[in-house]
Design a binder for these strands. Structure first.
Lengths: 220, 220
DNA sequence: CGTCCCCCTTGATGCACATCAAGGCATCTG
DNA sequence: CAGATGCCTTGATGTGCATCAAGGGGGACG
């Protein structure tokens, strides 16, 4: 029960009911949680670690549609199938909610439903930002936006905004931003050379010049 | 009241209550419905015509995040501000729901909330498809996907799937697909030359070879 | 402790699409 | 009806990022 308090931001009464149906599990890095097209049996909540969501084209081209961190939900589905695949980036802990039982709870607690809806709305807004990024930003702007985004989300989770933790590989970043690993690498190098960022140990990135990176991100 | 039946797919009891707060209005082509950042006073439902949603970068670069047709909703907001701008593509009829009153109704009719949630989920799935398109598809694949998407949505609205109605300009298509008008135009010309589509009067496009265009869209 | 492997970086080259430019055609307007 | 205007198409050229290629460094493991 106690451990459940880490299970996202729910309220007292809801928590008790959620506790009855939830299952907490730890997942190693680079493990598939579910695949696109799988029957959507569960809803998940990340409580620690990092998860990536992605879609594939038949020839293997990949688009990562989002990274999830502590507090984020995944598994919302359309007509009972997952619309994307989910894989851990690092060691991760997730809460698993059987979908059927979750739906019953939603009927019982409209507030809960409301919260989920508001989360979906936020995701939708994020998705639109990402479309703007993918369709209209340059490589440099994409990387700047990406770093800022990570930083801002870290703050919302109560972590430090700088240096930014970047737990995913260059290849994952590339597939998230619609670039190649080489371009991602070159762009990092270039931002470093400009004194805008510093690459630290353990996948951390120090934002040395926040103002400039903000300008770059917005197309300045 | 009668005219309200065109206001999307709601149920008897809900409809009566919705009728009290709704306002139907007709809007000319190329009119702004609301702008990104505006205080989100209303929720809208398109009952006829076409609307585009878009986001801008400070230097004017534009990404259209979606086109809306009869039955589609717009105006979901995060922290009371619209996350994008909305503009009519052609003459359009929309239902307007004051947001405050809509929220009260949502509390009263959980089913209504459920329906909105499911719509948001669908939009989210569509947004992820669009990310895949923007990040990883070629111009040819983008155009093929775009035409198929329009065709499929037309079917869902009960219209004919072929020829496809394409009410938006080349420039709008370009900003939706992350291309330029020139590339859109050239790609149409090329698909026409290959005998895969035919360009008809009045912005209609005949899909001559559905199988091939499907293959192209999925990266075949 | 050496070797393998993966990830990252850097360099050289190529190409898909952008940019720049111009002309056609339909619609609008005084 | 002449001129203006907006949208589309087509051609010539440019370029940002992809592709191809190779080497370096760190962690895993025998």
């Amino acid at each position: 029960m106690r451990s459940l308090t880490v299970c996202a931001a729910f309220e007292e009464e809801e928590l008790n009911r959620l506790a009855e149906i939830v299952q907490l599990q730890r997942v190693d890095a680079h493990q598939t949680i579910f695949s696109e097209g799988d029957s959507a049996m569960n809803l998940f909540n990340v409580t620690a670690g990092t998860v990536k969501l992605y879609k594939l084209l038949p020839d293997g081209r990949r688009q990562i549609t989002g990274f999830l961190f502590s507090g984020d939900f995944l598994g919302l589905s359309v007509n009972d199938r997952y619309a994307y695949s989910a894989e851990t980036v690092a060691v991760t802990s997730i809460c698993r909610f059987p979908r059927r039982q979750m739906e019953l709870l939603l009927d019982e607690f409209p507030k809960l439903q409301r919260r989920l809806f508001s989360m979906a709305s936020n995701e939708l807004a994020a998705a639109q930002d990402q479309m703007l990024l993918l369709g209209r930003k340059t490589a440099r702007e994409k990387i700047a936006s990406f770093l800022l985004g990570l930083s801002q989300r870290a703050v919302r989770r109560g972590q430090r905004e700088n240096p930014v933790q970047v737990p995913m590989s260059r290849s994952d970043i590339a597939d998230f931003l619609g670039l190649t690993t080489e371009t991602v690498s070159r762009t990092f190098t270039q931002l470093k050379a400009n004194g805008i960022i510093r690459l630290l140990e353990g996948g951390k990135v120090q934002i040395a010049d926040r103002r400039t990176i903000l300008e770059i991100a917005e197309g300045g």
